[in-house]
Write a protein that binds this DNA or RNA. Sequence first.
DNA 1: GACTATAGAGAACGATCGTTCTCAATGCAA
DNA 2: TTGCATTGAGAACGATCGTTCTCTATAGTC
Lengths: 185, 185
Amino acid sequence: MSEENRTRIVEAADELFYARGIGQVGMDAVRDAAGVSLRALYNEFPSKEDLIVAVLGKRHEMWTSGVSRKVDAIAEPRAKLLAVYDYLADWFDDGDFRGCGFINAFGELGAASPRVAETVQDHKADFQRYVDALVERAGGPASLGPQLAMLAEGAQTTAAISGTTEAAHHARAAAETLIAAAGLA
Amino acid sequence: MSEENRTRIVEAADELFYARGIGQVGMDAVRDAAGVSLRALYNEFPSKEDLIVAVLGKRHEMWTSGVSRKVDAIAEPRAKLLAVYDYLADWFDDGDFRGCGFINAFGELGAASPRVAETVQDHKADFQRYVDALVERAGGPASLGPQLAMLAEGAQTTAAISGTTEAAHHARAAAETLIAAAGLA
DNA sequence: GACTATAGAGAACGATCGTTCTCAATGCAA
DNA sequence: TTGCATTGAGAACGATCGTTCTCTATAGTC
């Protein structure tokens, strides 16, 4: 029961935080959306900061599983690198896309909450390691990893602000050029 | 006098908003930092949203003049493109660097305030046009502009979250590769 | 010097928010 | 059934915030 409450709360909070911005969402709104009592909410998450960290944790899992599903579907190591941008394209096409939740949380609360800042840093470092590993398995130089990750980063904010999906395709095209220039056929 | 008040308020607010996140800064804090009465503050900016938009406007000017100062110092059209990343490197080295103020504002308030969202969009569109113009003058293909701008975008968020300057150099290296691949010697 | 307009200092207001508390209802153990 | 622990519903609390108002002092005008 408690576990069911947790997931319902986290899912509702994630949706609200992401759509409106964390500071614009009160705990009352989370309670209403989750269909849970305020007492149950605070039983699971003793403070809003705890809830925020949990939401980011769930978002990290969604990101990680979403990216690797797309990457795992491709066999060729070089093409795996490009699959990341295909995942972005799918994501950007979601009507509710509003940028990277981690970047948004960092900009809003990174300075005020060390826990939030650290959670965001961990997420980005994890993704960087993931891309680095793909690059290595494809036989690319170590310098390629940060460049490819940065393109993904830039695509997310560009797509969020411009409101268009193009950024994913521009990023993918740039990645193809970088990969080819790195000597990966 | 009123003009002097305006600039003092905007400068103080910019520093606070950027360092702490906009929602974490009350109008009282702005008043204290600006050394101005609350009445004078509201005389110049009838609402906090007005102040936020003014702060973003000033930030846009700082960004525009900073980038073009760096770009104008270079003669060769191809090298002008890379000067953008040198500007980023300088900026990231600032101890108070905390990412792109526009991205931060968008993530925090873009959904709640159409005026903020539009101001951020205008800023990014302006920068994109600027890069596109540099690319065109260098004889590069139109597809290069979005790619270079996206690298700059990604570098800013990466540097902000990782807390390191490297991102500017990675972005610059990637830009060199993209520029070379586009046939610009 | 008297009058008026302006502005500073900060109290005050109303709303919101994170968090806790009250109270009644429920479910379970004996 | 009685007693007890748990829970839901939501009122209440204390703090903060954006904004306005009061009151006083000052400066300029006649």
